[in-house]
């Protein structure tokens, strides 16, 4: 935020806002209002999470809840521990203390493949697509845990293997490829795609996992304005049409404040704020973390101006 030109941010925010309003209207017409965290049983609970690498504490005593159907965003300056938090939730790192509960079930000791099967899908900050495969195969791979084909079926491509592949192909085409508007690239190898399209394919692959919660690590980082708008629209649609809870890490403040129902702020591995976008914006700790210490009230005013223009 400190480095961003306020003008750029506000322009971005304005553009996204239009999309957001549309989605909000859709949600209201569907009978649902903004989801308030804490009122329903959370889909994901993180409790007292501490993660250390040698002497360095990447996370200390982090705890928050993600309400089902919400868009929850984790923000924080570089090196605050956001990606470490993601990696712990998806099971790469084992926390030294603390618990992660998914739909009430303790998954702290569950291996990553089993978490995927439960409905925890994620994308990566540095795109992690399989470069040797086409877009279609990358997306199909997401369904892996839900398919039953065994080696013998596969070698003979008979019965179950053929049936499953055809069903999968149809569903991927009709629900995911159409939804994300990537039908023109389905047979291309992913390595030739632009950055924005690769991010979209990664999201498609995550959606093929039949996720209950979709974790996006910086979904719009490095994207141009148009790509960012598209992605923001897809994130809202995923929540509204698919009913998938979204947990994301993002630096684009305009997008964070517009899309999120709930914002969690990390700094130096500690949770410093947790609440609605408006609450977080007003939090002096957050302003200090982002803009450095100084005259807090003046900085707060600057931040509010930016956001007021934006949305």
């Amino acid at each position: 935020m400190a480095r961003d030109t306020p003008l750029l941010v506000s322009a971005l925010a304005l553009a996204i806002n239009a999309q957001h309003e549309l989605a909000a209207r859709k949600r209201q017409s569907a009978g649902g209002d903004k989801v308030h965290p804490g009122k329903v049983n959370p889909i994901l609970e993180v409790e007292g999470l501490t993660l250390s690498f040698g002497g360095i504490k990447a996370l200390s005593d982090v705890g928050f809840e993600v309400a089902p159907g919400s868009i929850t965003t984790v923000i924080g300056p570089n090196g605050a521990g956001k990606t470490s938090l993601f990696n712990t939730i998806s099971g790469f790192y084992k926390p030294s203390t603390g618990r992660i509960r998914f739909e009430g079930e303790d998954i702290t000791a569950t291996r990553p493949p089993a978490r995927a099967k439960l409905g925890l899908a994620r994308s990566f900050q540095n795109i992690a697509l399989f470069r040797g495969m086409t877009v279609l195969d990358n997306i199909k791979l997401g369904r892996h845990t839900h398919l039953r084909t065994n080696v013998l079926d596969a070698l003979f491509y008979f019965g179950r293997a053929r049936r499953e592949e055809m069903e999968l192909r149809q569903e991927v085409e009709e629900r995911i490829i159409d939804f994300l508007e990537i039908d023109h690239i389905r047979h291309m190898p992913v390595s030739v795609l632009s950055y924005g399209l690769q991010k979209r394919v990664e999201m498609a692959r995550a959606l093929a996992m039949r996720p209950k919660i979709l974790m996006l690590d910086e979904p719009v980082a490095g994207m141009n304005r148009e790509e960012t708008e598209d992605m923001a629209r897809f994130i809202l649609d995923v929540r509204d049409e698919w009913g998938v809870t979204v947990l994301m890490v993002e630096h684009d403040m305009g997008m964070v404040m517009d899309l999120s129902d709930h914002v969690v702020v990390l700094n130096f591995g500690k949770l410093i704020a947790d609440g609605t976008p408006a609450e977080v914006q007003a939090n002096p700790e957050v302003i200090k973390a982002y803009l450095g210490s100084g005259d807090v009230s003046e900085l707060r005013e600057r931040l509010h101006q930016t956001v007021a223009v934006g949305g």
Partner: peptide, 14 residues
């Protein structure tokens, strides 16, 4: 053409 083969390629690539 099936999930087994895709899993192999996935392991190779990442």
């Amino acid at each position: 053409r099936t999930r087994i083969g895709r899993a192999f390629i996935a392991i190779r690539d990442r």
